[in-house]
């Protein structure tokens, strides 16, 4: 099987700051990969390059065998770590916006997810709490039939019960035909859904492997390993 994402020696500099210093990462189809690192380690930069929003300074990245561009954007569903829904929108406008934008958007699935998340179609986006907004954006992103889902901090800033709900939605809607890359620093809450993990520190991958094998070999949870690597 060919990998859905392959990066080799990926570098990114902002003026004189190096955000990525040669990242090698492979993601196979049907896998959920955790990209774990503290703030400023380069997680978001890497995801933005994979999503086709930023260009790499050096090295290469292929999504489904293709460099980021129009095709890859059509098969990548990206949840950014900031808000991008417009203030005037109601929830149903946001759904329509996604439907117009993406050919692979499944409106029926979106309706199911919104219901699961207890989101009212007629609520105004600006009236939603931070956790509700996070749930809305995740619902929209998961309603696409993408080959690769990129979720940047899907648990950021939401309370523990909302976190459970979000995790449930991710597990329920994951299909074997797609892959996911998820960044987080809340490792404890989410480590059970990772197939593989990669620890990123200061723009470099410092440790990566199969989550179960790491647990077995190091006799530690991924959360403990994270604390060890980044203490």
């Amino acid at each position: 099987m060919d990998n859905i994402l392959k990066s080799e020696g990926l570098c990114k500099s902002y003026l004189n700051k190096k955000a990525l210093r040669g990242v090698d990462l492979d993601i196979m189809p049907g896998r959920i990969v955790g990209l774990l690192g503290p703030n400023g380690s380069g997680k978001t930069t890497f995801l933005k390059i994979a999503a086709g929003i930023l260009h790499a300074s050096k090295g290469k990245i292929l999504i489904d065998g293709t460099e980021p561009g129009v095709y890859t954007k059509s098969i990548v569903s990206y949840l950014p770590d900031n808000e991008y829904l417009l203030k005037w929108m109601k929830v149903k406008d946001a759904v329509k916006y996604f439907k117009d934008f993406y050919a692979d958007f499944d409106e029926k699935k979106a309706k199911e997810l919104l219901e699961f998340m207890n989101l009212d179609e007629n609520s105004a986006v600006k009236s939603l709490s931070k956790g509700m907004k996070e749930k809305l954006m995740l619902s929209l992103v998961l309603s696409r039939k993408a080959k690769l889902y990129i979720l940047d901090e899907p648990l950021g800033g939401v309370d523990p019960t909302a976190r459970e709900k979000i995790l449930d939605a991710i597990v329920n809607n994951f299909s074997e035909n797609s892959s996911m890359i998820i960044t987080t620093h809340l490792v404890n809450d989410i480590e059970r859904i990772f197939d593989d993990v990669a620890f990123i520190s200061d723009g470099e991958i410092v440790l990566q492997g199969n989550a179960e094998e790491l647990r077995r070999d190091k006799k530690k949870s991924i959360d403990e390993l994270y604390r060890e690597v980044f203490q």
């Binding site: 959920i32 995790l167 329920n172 859904i193």
Partner: peptide
């Protein structure tokens, strides 16, 4: 079972 236990389906498959 994966949904019930909140784990990755691949883990359960294994």
């Amino acid at each position: 079972m994966a949904i019930n236990l909140k784990v990755n389906p691949n883990t359960l498959q294994r």
